[in-house]
């Protein structure tokens, strides 16, 4: 099982330094083997991006492969953003790029986002977004980005949240390299996403690590209320994340 939406947050650094053991405890307790780990401080403070990317890489390196490091860059840093992307993906071996456009103050439609996507294609890593909140985080904005970069796997980190999940469905249906992470919408919305969208591009995540709370106690039973088939669970919790991390998506559909 792979959790596709987690963070290494400031609270963890302040308490545990670079030791991931306590961060991993709830994963172990709930049977989650691996997690895609994104920064938090770097999303909030552009001046600390390099340091936070280093920190995420270092923590993940101590996790016996269970924590898959993702970096972030700030598009307003222009050339430096491209350099930092190369450093993270090349030198540090990070396996994804995360953007939180409203927190970071940058548009998904910025030309620099296109440059970052070209680097993502070069290194074969996905680009993950916070989504579900205007004006910078609409699923439709990410769909158009994905269509401009058909060789890059783009992930809606929240599948539209509470207000834009219908938009997420439309975006996912019309964009074969767009993925939806079930981390945020209410139960009725998730049911509809699962019913309408290509199951082979749905993922699951928890936002674990943004704070110190054990969010798995909430996220797991929440997913249970969907009463997914065994095949759907296998796809969403295991197979799809593994395929996303391997590279370009296959077009196969699971029903």
């Amino acid at each position: 099982m792979i959790d596709c939406h987690t963070h290494w947050g400031r609270a963890w650094t302040e308490r545990d330094g670079l030791d991931p053991r306590r961060w991993l405890e709830p994963l172990t307790a709930h049977g989650v083997q691996r997690a895609m780990v994104m920064p938090e401080e770097g999303l909030l403070d552009a001046g600390r991006i390099g340091r936070d990317n280093d920190r995420v890489a270092a923590v993940c390196a101590r996790s016996d492969g269970r924590m898959i490091p993702c970096c972030t860059v700030n598009l307003w840093m222009r050339e430096e953003a491209a350099r930092e992307t190369r450093r993270c993906l090349g030198d540090l071996g990070m396996r994804g790029i995360k953007f939180h456009p409203w927190l970071q103050g940058g548009s998904v439609s910025s030309p620099l986002m296109d440059e970052v996507c070209e680097l993502a294609a070069e290194y074969g890593v996905p680009v993950l977004f916070h989504d579900g909140t205007p004006p910078f985080c609409l699923p439709s904005q990410m769909a158009l980005l994905a269509r401009r970069h058909p060789g890059v796997q783009i992930v809606l980190g929240h599948s539209g949240l509470f207000e834009h999940w219908r938009e997420a469905i439309a975006a996912l249906k019309g964009t074969p390299n767009l993925w939806g992470c079930l981390c945020g919408p209410h139960v009725a919305a998730m049911r509809e996403i699962v019913r309408q969208c290509d199951l082979s591009r749905l993922l699951w995540g928890t936002d674990h690590g943004y704070g110190l709370a054990d969010v798995y106690q909430y996220r797991f039973p929440l997913m249970d209320t969907l009463r997914l088939s065994d095949a759907a669970r296998q796809a969403i919790f295991d197979d799809n994340p593994a395929r996303l991390l391997r590279g370009p998506a296959s077009a196969s559909k699971i029903r």
Binding site: Q217, P221, T225
Partner: peptide
Amino acid sequence: TAMPRNDMEFELAQLRR
């Protein structure tokens, strides 16, 4: 709870916890 957008039993159990 915003039922039926959310599951009443689940939401109440979470908050009671």
